[in-house]
Design a protein around this nucleic acid. Structure first.
Lengths: 215, 215
DNA sequence: AAGTAGACTTACCAAGAAGTAAGATTAGAG
DNA sequence: CTCTAATCTTACTTCTTGGTAAGTCTACTT
């Protein structure tokens, strides 16, 4: 770590350090249980600085969400554009996702594990962040669907459905990864692709699953 | 609704009404942002009654988690045992899950959408509740895997993996359902089964998805 | 050396919310 | 009818915490 003992820092740097600290505390405690004093202390600074730079506890949280959301989307998008086929792009995107979450666990927790109803501005910011993540995944899935367009015809609603399922599965697998630290992120991606993509491919090819007949 | 205007009620009844109110408020606001006065008011009662019957805010939350967790597991288990093949049982279980969440949205929110780190007792209770839900799903998935044991051999770790992915997908699809109210829970189950089960079936049959070669 | 702007702190306030003491009210038993 | 036990309330106390007023300190300019 860099030497940050009692040294004055320019605003642009200090702001980022405050956001780092806030991310840590928010992810550990959740928005309401987080205490601004603790964030300030972790940032090596006193509370009024936080308010001077970020305005309010809400502003602090919003700053975290905005920054980490952009980072995550950037990582995902960059990985996903470097592939020629839809399935490669999806694979690359998911790999990037799991790698990102494994390395920046707090970011994902702040983005997707907050209790509902923490205020208007926060709810809107979180919704926007989640929409932007979802939009990336939906785009890839839609490409995959329309490319492999076989016997069954699927539409945008289906892409949205699959994207939701994928993101949810990935989120939950985040917990699974914590229970199995020996599993590398790459392996998790591989398993998930096997589960979902093979299914999607075959469903598109016409192999539908039939519900049992109700008596 | 029953007439609950200014009527004295026996403890056993009032307790349940308090838990009903608490569930509503906790699910809307999250644990910390929830205020005991609001819970009391919604239950048509004053605050000291809540403390007399449930002990503390934590006790209140734990009571919610315990009751709703048991309800959900009961609904899932009952539906799942009424089927002869693993895939029917899984289908029935998922159907029951989506029906339950559609009807008792608050229960699921309280069980799976709370911020982390709200205290030792709460964390333990939530972990236990989630384990019990996950255990049900894992059991069904394991049955499905061992029954269809084809070319590929999968173990308990894989069942756990699939169960996590399934629960996460189902959780996220809960949000999707709110965006598409016209979709019946049964249809959601069907789509999810098509996506996951067809994939699992074919993976078990040996159709693995190959990761693209890194250059 | 003096001045200035920006980084930073101590010490405080006000509001909100968990939890409680002390007692009032009512349903039902005898 | 009376007595008792259970249900229920008003009116607090206490502590936490978001937010701020008022100023101090230091690096840099001229």
């Amino acid at each position: 770590m860099t030497d940050k003992r009692r040294r004055r820092l320019p605003r642009s740097v200090r702001e980022q350090e405050i956001i780092d600290a806030a991310l840590h505390v928010f992810s550990k405690r959740g928005y309401h249980a987080a205490v601004v004093d603790e964030i300030a202390e972790l940032a090596g600074i006193s509370k009024p600085m936080v308010y001077l730079y970020l305005g309010s506890k809400e502003g602090l949280f919003v700053a975290c969400v905005r920054r980490e959301s952009e980072r995550l989307v950037a990582a995902f998008r960059e990985a996903a554009q470097a592939g020629d086929s839809p399935e490669r792009r999806l694979w690359a995107g998911l790999s990037a996702f799991f790698a990102f979450v494994a390395e920046h666990r707090g970011s994902w927790v702040v983005l997707h594990r907050q209790s509902p109803g923490q205020g208007e501005a926060i709810a809107e910011e979180l919704a926007a962040a989640r929409r932007s993540v979802m939009a990336e995944v939906t785009g890839l899935v839609r490409d995959g669907i329309t490319e492999g367009g076989g016997a069954v015809q699927l539409g945008d609603q289906d892409a949205d459905f699959v994207a939701h399922a994928l993101v949810g599965a990935a989120d939950s697998l985040t917990d699974w990864m914590e229970l199995h630290p020996e599993q590398a992120p790459g392996g998790v991606t591989l398993r998930l692709m096997n589960m979902v993509w093979v299914g999607m491919r075959n469903v598109l090819a016409g192999e539908v699953w039939a519900p049992p007949h109700d008596e």
